[in-house]
Design a protein around this nucleic acid. Sequence first.
DNA 1: GAGGTGACTGCGA
DNA 2: CTCGCAGCCACCT
Length: 116
Amino acid sequence: MKAKNSFDRHSFFEDVFAVVRLIPKGRVSTYGAIAKYLGTGKSSRMVGWAMNASHAAIPHVPAQRVVNRNGLLTGKFHFTTPTLMQELLEKEGVKIEKDTVQNFEKVFWNPADELL
DNA sequence: GAGGTGACTGCGA
DNA sequence: CTCGCAGCCACCT
């Protein structure tokens, strides 16, 4: 196939990036919430996969604010350093313990609830 | 163009 | 909370 990059056309990556960038500082969201908001619904994997390309997104996407439904920093190994994700969140006021967001229900930000 | 992969989720136990 | 199973779909080779 042609060597088409994700940026050759309007892909849902951009939609994911747009939503993630809307996450307020000190808040976090989940892949499922974003997926549902975008309509991908059950395919929350696609959100995670989209985040895989977030490093190349401009402006930068605050992927550290996106965790799985358990509040676990599942994607921290995809950052520059495995500790960067936690450090960024703590710097924003989000408490992290054992790679898990503390008070997750309180800092959770649901796009389908806030944006719609 | 078929097959493999994955930063996930929901449900049952 | 943990463990296991199945479904899900865009992207890459």
